[in-house]
Every structure is written in structure tokens, then in C-alpha cells.
Design a protein around this nucleic acid. Structure first.
Lengths: 388, 388
DNA sequence: GGATTAACTCAATTTATTTGAATTATCAAT
DNA sequence: ATTGATAATTCAAATAAATTGAGTTAATCC
């Protein structure tokens, strides 16, 4: 058997692919930028960048944005990503529904679709997905032939683990190769991920973490998830199940973190008082009414969030922690403001560039959009490798 | 200002460097291996590998090990790393002493040095280091001109953080650029790191984690450290302070993790009973005598270790967790055996390839050897980048 | 003993980058 | 207004390092 290497070798073709990616990524990072500046940033010659830019423009990935004079010398022709140069599909499969979103190259949601389901068997899901994709492509014909790939979000954990059968798994999907299934159905390259990782990527592509390369994302799903981004790439763990922070015990013996800090937790808490808060809007309303039950939940949730911060900051030393997911903005804001940030933390630095905790994207579609963001990220950057 | 990219561009020269590294890494991974097999593993042609191997042999990095016939066809000439092809220096600076170790390419410690110090001011330390290096080079003249670099381990955290001034910082080093200082003194490329990260790398280069690409290392230093390896590379965090797991609160309100699980903790515990256990040997002796105080400490330490496992496993989903550091083997073994592994964990998988918790290297020099391992790792692999 | 298989080498080719000279457009100084 | 300095860009030639294809060598299989 071949001993699997950690890295593959390189040749001219692979170098070129990498350089194209790097140029695209640099254009995105800068917004608009000229060739010479790209060349300097990437340690390439202007000639090389010129060739690549010519190709990318030819392919419709870039737009000319006129010349920009900055000091002496010939003003540089500015380039920007063409939003319509490529599209990424996001697919989120939940126990009761399927969500789809189509992002353009700029990270803008061009269209979204959803369908309720009552059975999650693979063939049923795949049939729905196929139909929804067809609908999207008739709505956005420009995307035809310009699809970069599909990101798929499903309830984790993946594979057989100690937390299997905890209710988060999708029935019928245990024995199948989900990635292969979706690749066949979509005829696109597929990236599979959990909701927290996807949401984290969304923040990097189009949210508050666009200029942040190392951060953690605390995600309100059914439970509590954690997405880790390091050097601009997701840290997925050996088996793709990194970030199951919800199962960590609380410091006051009251159970695990997600017993106090999750959608399920707030729902249970409100239910005990006879109140129902199934969806985001209902929660937002209760918050607006300063509902005492909700406020009492927020108290314990804040404490739990503080504990989560202590863990995440000290283990990961991120530039910031982003809080988001299936919660109303107001509640996320409240938590961001009221969570007791641990003093004893490597992140408690006097002159920090970013706040230690900030609110990210929220709402029902967060993970779906994030799924598509996984694809955009892949198209615009490759994992670190700065052999100096 | 230039917008800093995450990746640099590639060209023929950088590709070649990368391929040389990849070939060396593959030889190390396999032990002995032929060119064709390397080519298959790295997705290169045999011709390319042939050229690289010729150069590496010329440079004295590889040794021919005869032909190995495996089935039909011309038997492949086997190659292995030449242990004397390159040397890595490990430097550990502690408040009371400086340790140096010289590793050859195979990861074997060729020689070690130590000196006690009573002042930690940079110029004092640097002078000692220079003298020790000179001594090492006269002992191992073969290393002259074949030094790959120096890994330096110092007490963290680096920069100004919320846990500064907790006693772990080295006095006099707050305002200096340690890396530049060591690079100047050693005239070698320098990698700076904390003890836990270095120890983790040592396990990958020459320990129990040689075939493991994603793992966590729990390190007994003064406190409790955590080294994270993902995809064969260290996860250092945004500011290089990832892995300060010791500061995380315990689930039973009894303080932080390292209050129960660290060298300081066991020393304090024994001191209260009037016993002194300054060094590893003393602890080993107490353990052999089944000292009741030590056993009672082990009880609480085991619980703390179980908690640490819950955190690390659920956040990182590693292939395994390695326990090591400045403790006697026997005590590490005891802890590995007695720590209550959390059932509720993504790592609690029925058919795991590796045990969830295993003992790594121990003893006084662990971090010093690890410091050198950082350099070897850098010489033998570059960060992941599998553009498919 | 001949066919088959696989590793390896040599020489020619290909890919993509770099290099160097020439061109163009702007700013700054006279 | 003219001139010189500066910087972006392009064209053509050179270069680095990979791949390709044909040929050689040495093992196993039948």
C-alpha cells in the first residue's frame, strides 16, 4: 500500500492553478486592485500576473474598473471580481426541510429555495435537491455552466462516535457516502460540512470576519456548535467532527454547555412556562416584550457563554469569537453584551484589534449561505504554504 | 499598504523546493522507499523524482540501501534518510537553566547540554547559548555546516495577554524580539514556540505520533499546556498562544484545570504534607512507594484529566491525545489508565485506530528535544495544499 | 527460454514563469 | 510649457523545472 503523503508534489500546471486562485483571492481581498500591486503581494512578476489576469478576464471572472492614479507613474488599471463570474450552491438538509441558496462570486445571495420534507431517506432528499436546483437554474440562467460547486450542510456528527444517536443525526444517512451521492446528483464538486463550520466560512466570505484569518464561531443550531478557522481555512478535526463544544460539561455541575446555551435549551425553558417559541420571529417578539422567562434564560445562557469563551480563547487564541446562528439579532446582541468575558484568558489583551466577542450573521438561512461560502472559499484560496 | 495575502504565488523554483521537501518527507514516512513509489505517492513522474533524488544524494541527505525486489520488474533501489545529512538544534530557556539538544536528521539526540543560570536577562541568556553551541559543534564536528535551524522554547504566553504576569513569563524578555535575537546569535533560521507545541512535534518526529497527522498533546510543564497538531502542522493560534488549556475552569468549581493537573499542583499537594518532590526522580520514588499523598493527588488529577479530555476531544476531534512532559513515566501511565474518558465525546468511537489517550515522551528534556523537532518538521514537510 | 512487468535513464518537449527592453501615462520640478 | 522621474504595462526572448516517449535493465511468470 502507498504511504499517503501529507502534501503532493508540484508542477507547472498545479503552480498555475494555484496562482490563478491566489490572484482571484487577492482581488477579492482588496476589492479593486491593479496588476502590479497583486504581483507585489504574491511575490510574482507583473508579467505573470498580467497573463493570469488576461485569462481570468477572458473567462469572465474579472471586471475592469478604470485606471486609478496614485502618485507618479502610469495609473494602474483596476480590477474587481465579476459577481456573475461564478456561482456557488449551498444545500442544507434538516430533519424537516431542505434549504438551498445560490451565491454569486461576490457572496451575494442571488436566490434561495426551501421545501418541507417529512422523510429524510437519501433518495427522497436527493430527488428534492435535484428539483430545487432545476428551479434555481431556470430562475438564474446566468449561473448555468458557471457553477463552482455545492456546499452541503447536514446534521453531524459524521461517522460512528460517542455522541451518535443523540438526536442530531439524520435517519437513513448513516451508511451512505453523502458526498458521492450529492456529487452525482448535482454533477458538481461537493464539500460536506456541519452547520457551524459553514456559518463560520460565511462570516469570512461576506460577514464580519472578512479580514480575520483566525477566529472561532459559536453557532446556535439545535445544539451549540463551534467552527474553527485558522489561517483562513477550517480546522475540521481528524474525522470532520471538530467543534462539538456543546457536549462539554459546565463548570457548575449543571450539565453540558448546550443545556444552557442552544435553541433547544431556550425552547425547553420557555415551554416549562407554557410559552412556545418555535421560530426566530417568536423569540424576537418575546425579547421585545422583555419576557421574564426569556430574560432568566438569558442570564444562565450568558454565564454559559462566558464559560465557552474561556475554553475557546485559551485553547485556540483566536483574533475574535463570532456568535451567530438561528437566533434573532437582538438576542445575540444581548448575549454579546452580557456574557462575562473571562479575565484569565490569553485573549484578554490590552490593545486588541478586534472585540473579543462579536455578533455574526443570524437567522434561519445562516448555515445554508455558509454551505455556499465553503465553495467560494475554496475557489478563492488554497491552504497556507509560504515556503519562504 | 499592501493587503497581505494568505498565500504567495508559485513558480518553478518554489515548486522545486516544495518537491524536494515532499520527497524527503516521503522517504522519512516510509523509512526506505524507491523512486517510483515516491513518484506515485506525490503524483509526480519518476523522472522528476529521479532528478530530485540525485540532487539529495549529492547533498548527502539520502543513503542508498540496495535493491528491493517486490514482484515482477526491475527491483527498486531503496533510499533512506541519511541521519547525518542534517542537524537541528533545540534550545530551551527556563527561569533557572538553559537546555540544548542536537538532533540528527533521523530525530536521534546526538548530544545535549545544560547550564544553570540565575539571571534571565536576554544578553546573559544569549551569551550562554552561544557558548553552548560552540561546545556542541566541537563535540559533533559533522554538524558544522549542516545545521538546518534552531527551535527555541521559552515560557509563554507571548505578547501581552490576560494571563501575563502569572509567573510563567521570563523576566527581561517582554520587550525584545526573541526570534531576531536568537537568529542573530545562532546564525540559523529560528522557530519560536512554547513547550507544549514543541513536545507535540517531538512525538510526530520521533515518538508515538509518527503516523498520526491530527492529535493533541497534553503537556506537564510548570502548568498544563496543550499542543495541537492538525494535518501534520502545529495550530498556533492567531498570536501563538493557542493551547493554554490550564486556565480553563474545572467543572466542580474547584478552580482551574492546572490547579489539579500540573507539576506545580502535585508539588503543592505534597508540600502540604511536608513532602518535597522537586524533580522527576523524587516523584517516581514516591510513586513506587505508593505514597498516599501522591495517590490522593492522582485521584483528583485523573478527574481533571478526564475533563480536559472532554474539552479537547469535543473541540478538536483528534485521532488521539498524547500525555507527556516533565513527569515520570509511571505517573503518566497511571493517569492514562485511570483518567475517566468521557462517554459523551466525538472521539468515543467503537472501532478507533488509536487509543483515545496514550503516553508520550517524558522527562526533563522533552521540550528541548521538541524544539529541535520543530526544525526537522519544517525541513520535511510544508503545510497542506492539495489542489486536486 | 521467451513473454511480461516494473524501475530507471536519456533526450526532446512542454508549461509557465522570469528577464530585459520598450512604451505609455502621470506627477513634480524647473 | 517643458523636462525628468516614476510607475504600470506589454512584447519578445530566456530560463527553470516539470513531462513525455523511447530505450535499457533486471526481476517474475509460464
Amino acid at each position: 500500500m502507498i504511504v499517503q503523503p501529507l502534501v503532493k508534489g508540484s508542477n507547472a500546471e498545479r503552480s498555475k492553478h494555484r496562482n490563478r486562485q491566489a490572484v482571484l483571492g487577492q482581488v477579492r481581498l482588496a476589492g479593486t486592485i491593479g496588476r502590479a500591486e497583486i504581483a507585489r503581494a504574491l511575490s510574482l512578476t507583473t508579467q505573470t500576473v498580467s497573463n493570469i489576469i488576461a485569462e481570468l478576464s477572458e473567462d469572465g471572472m474579472l471586471l475592469e474598473k478604470g485606471r486609478l492614479s496614485s502618485g507618479r507613474g502610469l495609473p494602474a488599471i483596476q480590477y474587481a471580481l465579476n459577481p456573475e463570474g461564478g456561482y456557488a450552491l449551498g444545500i442544507e438538509v434538516r430533519p424537516d426541510a431542505i434549504f438551498l441558496a445560490l451565491l454569486d462570486m461576490a457572496g451575494t445571495a442571488v436566490t434561495t429555495e426551501r421545501v418541507a420534507i417529512n422523510r429524510t431517506k437519501p433518495d427522497v432528499v436527493i430527488a428534492h435537491v435535484k428539483a430545487l436546483i432545476a428551479r434555481i437554474l431556470t430562475q438564474v440562467p446566468a449561473a448555468q455552466g458557471r457553477m463552482l460547486g455545492a456546499g452541503v450542510v447536514m446534521p453531524g456528527p459524521f461517522g460512528v462516535t460517542g455522541i451518535a444517536g443523540m438526536g442530531s443525526d439524520l435517519t437513513g444517512w448513516h451508511e451512505v457516502d453523502a458526498q458521492a451521492l450529492f456529487e452525482q446528483a448535482t454533477e458538481l464538486p461537493v464539500v460536506l460540512s456541519n452547520d457551524a463550520n459553514a456559518a463560520a466560512m460565511a462570516e469570512r466570505i461576506n460577514g464580519v470576519a472578512q479580514d480575520i484569518t483566525s477566529f472561532a464561531y459559536l453557532y446556535f443550531g439545535a445544539g451549540l456548535g463551534l467552527g474553527l478557522v485558522h489561517g483562513g481555512q477550517l480546522v475540521r478535526g481528524a474525522f470532520g467532527n471538530a467543534g462539538e463544544i456543546g457536549h462539554i460539561p459546565m463548570p457548575d455541575q449543571s450539565g453540558k454547555l448546550e443545556d444552557a446555551l442552544s435553541r433547544l435549551s431556550v425552547q425547553r425553558h420557555l415551554q416549562r412556562a407554557g410559552k412556545d417559541a418555535r421560530d426566530v420571529d417568536a423569540l424576537a417578539q418575546l425579547f421585545q416584550q422583555s419576557d421574564p422567562e426569556l430574560l432568566s434564560w438569558l442570564d444562565t445562557a450568558s454565564v454559559a457563554l462566558g464559560h465557552a469563551m474561556a475554553i475557546v480563547e485559551n485553547i485556540f487564541d483566536p483574533q475574535t469569537v463570532v456568535l451567530g446562528g438561528a437566533m434573532p439579532d437582538e438576542i445575540l446582541d444581548y448575549l454579546v453584551e452580557h456574557a462575562p468575558l473571562p479575565e484569565l484568558s490569553v485573549s484578554n489583551r490590552p490593545q486588541a484589534q478586534h472585540p473579543r466577542l462579536m455578533r455574526g450573521a443570524s437567522g434561519r438561512m445562516t448555515a445554508t449561505l455558509g454551505a455556499a461560502a465553503l465553495i467560494l472559499n475554496r475557489a478563492l484560496s488554497s491552504p497556507i504554504s509560504h515556503a519562504h
